[in-house]
Amino acid sequence: MQNVTKSKWWQTMILKTIAMVLIGFIVFGPLMGTLLWSFAEKWFWPAAFPQELGLKYWKIAFTGQSPVLDSMAISITIALIVVVLATLISVPAGYALARFNLPWKRILLVLFLMPQAFPQLPVFINMTSIFYRYDLVGTVPGVIAVHLVISLVYSVWITTAAFKSIPVTLEEAARNLGASRLRVFFRITLPLATPGLIASSIFVFITSFDEFTGTFFIGAPFIQTLPTLMYTASMGYNMQYASVIAILLTIPALLFMLVLEKFLKAEYISGLGV
């Protein structure tokens, strides 16, 4: 009897281990390749591993005339500004879309979806020609504007969903006890929507941080964000250099995953399930 359960336990353990290894390989496999490349000083075909490992390219990336740090600073600045602007737009927009019966609601939601609904290149080429007229090409505000257009889709939709998930009766109960509309919004609605707003901000940040096509059309060559820099580097067949930048690009995503998880465990997100 005990032997049977024990062998069963082993079977499930082995299956689980195989599954974990497979998942790990699918998730981390490509990243491992990049990681290896970033440390490879010599890696010639057909060797499975680099012949020489070292920090040479990391040093190159972070010292001297290297544009990596500047690009990183510009990428982070742009991403943060986009997050702030997207939140400022999507909080009122999301609240209105979630709570009021706007006559043009559907059209509005589709409008926000537009930039993503068409093939991106024609959209960006059109935007470039428009931005030329207002002298926005090759400027930070121009790049911010492109990122904003792209990320508002996520931002508005996630924020709308966050507000929608809060039962109206929670707001009514507060008004019933004497709170004005504005007070209800800041004391009841906004705190309850915070987990959704944070999720949306993280999405927007990563979208902006990783954005390439729009940045390339509007910003290049004057504004070099990390993705456009990586493109330039890999065009020069400098795999190591490009890999270093690729890893820098994934770090914020990983960090935010941790933050997101912390917030998902926070006390009051349980309230979203009410």
């Binding site: 929670l170 109960a173 019933n176 004497g178 009841i188 009051y268 309230g271």
Partner: peptide, 15 residues
């Protein structure tokens, strides 16, 4: 209005 309402789903503030 100074009315006080008890809602069907109680509407307690979860936070």
């Amino acid at each position: 209005r100074n009315t006080a309402m008890v809602f069907q789903n109680y509407a307690l503030w979860p936070h």
